[in-house]
Design a protein around this nucleic acid. Structure first.
Length: 763
DNA sequence: GAGTTTGAAACT
DNA sequence: CAGTTTCAAACTC
């Protein structure tokens, strides 16, 4: 803790200037102009806040606003924190001093602002009152950068992050691993500080806790954003190695502002996604978000982040549990924080069952389709660690989080902690993969983590491997939509044979920045390609299809030679029929021709016909898949049971592209279809799965976008979006998990989610 | 496993 | 927005 990190810390201090907070402060204060480009970024981020997110979810806007507020507060809070820290630690003192100096200029102006002065005092008081806070703060200062929490302590956090990157570059993760505990602490501290600042006026007691919960989530998000931003910049330096990244970075510089928002949203989603929704629902009551965060943070570094979040979540829970959040929380947190993971773990156990369910959150819609594993909510670990979902948790995820949020988080924490402890960062991916596999198999979480064999299982199962997407990118560096993994919102894993891959946690910043770019270009770039044509049904939860399943490719295909009878055709690959949107020539899509065979109306007859056609057309795979489909079918039909059931079936089911799509879609209808798809999607089928998965995923995604567009709130959306979400949320983990994990979840969720969390916390 | 085909993604 | 190029998956042998 003390040794290496402190050194690093010193460096970060210098960076305070760079920190967005500092910049912001500078901007506020006439005293000194901002320095570096970083500042611009920070401003951009801030400005972005005002900018509407792609999805333009109300949440986002709210969230952004919250950011501002927080940041303002942060400047002050950071000071008080630092002061407290100083008392505790000398090394931190320096940083604090720097921070104070750096922020000092801004700080004065800030103080001028009413809230700050009051806040700063309050923060001090709290610190005094709570020895815990003081203790934690120092840690946060030191390691805060590593954690996404940095935002709360803008100066320190940002600087630290940058330093880490600069010094260690990618190694920062390792550093983080070592300091994971510290990082974790940081986040909570920051949040606390913020809370204290914000809520000082309020009561330091429970109110603080509640606010902390909400704020924490926000803070995390902001931190993530900062990290991303900073990281993007830094990463740019470090990652300059990547030619692809460079252009991206350049674009970032230009579009960072907007992208930042997106990223923020995404990060937010990642971190908060589920939590946000959950928090929204709970309003700071319990901080469930952690799971979603963990999911998003699959990567090693991310894990730590997750841990932090988790920690926060745990704290929140504790808070919730004990009305006296502040005191109890602090004490607990302190005790727990050092050992973070371990302590957290214990918390998890109680909630494990529910928690596990949550996991699906982080996955992008695409990811969902691809990664059945991830989808498996059963294990948070798998989700979080397993495949690292780059982006955010889907809306459904948020729902899940709301429902299960806390527990899952804890679990993930526990798992993560265990993994971490046992497995160094190095093993992170493997562990993740393993976990994912295990989840896919519905293996017990514990088993999965422990056994490295799981990976192999996946591979063996084949279908599962697909669940985890693999890519073979050679020139795209896995930072373009060419890369299936990237497109699915997941990091590349060992099974991938990609070259010069940047789609890894280490390059998180680059990945996020690239994603932003792509999303800035096409907000729906990461949304599921296949969408339900019929809005009518949201997938009412578990219930089988109410509406005929009409799924369509959003943009439609442009096939000319494949007659839409091969996977070259996205429609066919997605298991959906071609639609008017398609520009294909000689369409013979077994799932529905562009002409008229609308899948919707088709139903059984069409299905049968299509099935026959497909059988004829379809490959051996189809036949196999069919068998599986039947099984899946049953499973899906049966319960809406959550992920677990889904997973198992899903594994089996995937293959049945041909049948499922038709039958499932038509018969099962949208509702079941989604579930089945979700279930299927990740599970395993390589080819068929991909299609079905996509379909399912896409469908939900579509819903999601709609939600975003129409109703930002996850639940709010009228029929389709809302219903599916709601369904997902409450009962069917599968849906949620799948949906969230699915692409749709991602995009939609990302945008929507962030806003939500922010909304509650803002208060 | 290597080579070809294909169509989306990216670029201009 | 259209045309071209790039890319990696899907497919074939």
């Amino acid at each position: 803790m003390d040794t290496p990190e402190r050194n690093q810390i010193a460096a970060p201090i210098s960076k305070f200037e760079d920190s967005p907070v500092f910049n912001f402060i500078n901007s506020l204060s006439p005293i000194k102009p901002v320095k570096s480009a970083h500042i611009a970024q920070t401003f951009n981020s801030l400005s972005f806040v005002s900018l509407p997110s792609i999805f333009t979810s109300p949440h986002v806007s709210s969230h952004k606003e919250s950011r501002f507020l927080r940041r303002h507060n942060f400047s002050d809070p950071s000071k008080p924190e630092f002061s407290s820290v100083n008392g505790n630690k000398v090394s931190t003192n320096e940083e604090v001093m720097d921070a104070d100096q750096l922020c000092g200029n801004s700080g004065k102006p800030l103080e001028d602002f009413d809230p700050r002065s009051s806040i700063g005092k309050a923060s001090f008081e709290r610190n005094n009152g709570h020895s815990e806070l003081a203790i934690e703060l120092p840690q946060t200062l030191k390691y805060g950068c590593g954690s996404p929490d940095c935002d709360p302590t803008p100066c320190g956090g940002m600087c630290q992050i940058e330093q880490k990157k600069e010094e260690a570059g990618c190694d920062w993760e390792s550093l983080i691993s070592d300091a994971a505990d510290l990082l974790i602490f940081d986040s909570p501290d920051d949040t606390r500080a913020f809370k204290g600042l914000i809520q000082k006026s309020l009561d330091p007691g429970t109110s603080v806790c509640a606010s902390l919960g909400s704020q924490f989530s926000q803070d995390d998000v902001s931190d993530l954003q900062k990290k991303q931003f900073v990281g993007s910049d830094d990463s740019g330096e470090h990652e300059t190695d990547d030619p692809s990244t460079q252009p991206e970075e350049a674009s970032k510089l230009n579009g960072m502002d907007q992208k930042q928002e997106n990223l923020a949203n995404t990060s937010f989603k990642d971190c908060m996604g589920s939590n946000a929704s959950g928090e929204m629902d709970n309003e700071g009551g319990t901080s469930i978000p952690v799971p979603s965060k963990t999911l998003s943070n699959l990567h090693r570094g991310m894990r730590r982040r997750c841990l932090v979040f988790e920690m926060a979540g745990v704290r929140r829970k504790n808070m919730d549990d004990g009305s006296n959040c502040s005191s109890s929380m602090l004490s607990q947190s302190d005790g727990t924080f050092v050992p973070n993971d371990k302590q957290l773990v214990p918390l998890k156990p109680g909630n494990d069952s529910s928690r596990r369910i949550l996991p699906g959150i982080g996955l992008h819609l695409n990811a969902l389709a691809t990664t059945s594993k991830d989808y498996n909510i059963v294990k948070h670990e798998t989700l979080t660690s397993g495949r690292q979902l780059i982006s955010v948790p889907s809306s459904s995820g948020s729902y899940l989080s709301t429902i299960e949020g806390q527990e899952p988080v804890n679990k993930s924490l526990a798992l993560n902690s265990s993994d971490r402890e046992t497995d160094p960062a190095e093993n992170g991916f493997q562990a993740l993969e393993d976990a994912s596999q295990a989840s896919a198999y519905a293996i017990s979480e514990e088993l999965n983590q422990s056994s490295p064999k799981k990976k192999r299982r996946r591979l063996e199962h084949g279908g599962e491997t697909e669940g985890c997407k693999r890519c073979n990118c050679k020139k795209s560096k896995c930072l373009k939509l060419y890369c299936e993994c990237f497109a699915a919102g997941v990091y590349c894993v060992e099974p991938c044979s990609c070259q010069e891959c940047f789609n890894k946690p280490i390059h998180e910043d680059t990945v996020l920045a690239t994603r932003k770019q792509i999303e800035s270009r096409n907000p729906l770039a990461f949304a599921p390609k296949v969408i339900r044509s019929s809005d009518s049904l949201p997938e009412v939860g578990d219930e089988p299809s109410k509406t005929p399943a009409s799924a369509r490719h959003k943009r439609g295909c442009n096939c000319k030679k494949s007659s839409c009878l091969k996977k070259y055709c996205e429609c066919y690959q997605g298991g959906v029929g071609c639609s008017i949107n398609c520009r294909c020539e000689g369409c013979k899509n077994a799932f529905g021709r562009k002409d008229g065979s609308a899948l919707i109306g088709m139903e059984a007859e069409l299905e049968e016909e299509t099935e026959t056609l497909e059988k004829s057309v379809v490959d051996k795979n189809l036949q196999k898949s069919i068998v599986q489909n039947d099984e899946e079918y049953l499973d899906s039909a049966l319960p809406v049971t959550p992920l677990r059931t889904c997973r198992q079936p899903s594994q089996l089911s995937f293959p049945s592209k041909t049948k499922l799509p038709r039958s499932s879609f038509l018969t099962i209808g949208s509702s079941s279809g989604l579930h089945t798809s979700q279930i299927f999607g990740k599970p395993n089928f390589p080819q068929p799965q991909s299609k079905f998965e996509k379909k399912f995923q896409t469908i939900p995604e579509d819903e999601m976008p709609e939600i975003l567009r129409g109703n930002c709130s996850p639940t709010s959306s009228s029929i389709k979006t809302a219903s599916p979400n709601s369904k997902r949320v409450s009962p069917p983990h599968c849906d949620f998990g799948s949906s969230p994990s699915r692409r749709s979840g991602r995009k939609l969720i990302l945008q929507s989610i962030p806003s939500f969390p922010s909304l509650t916390p803002q208060h």
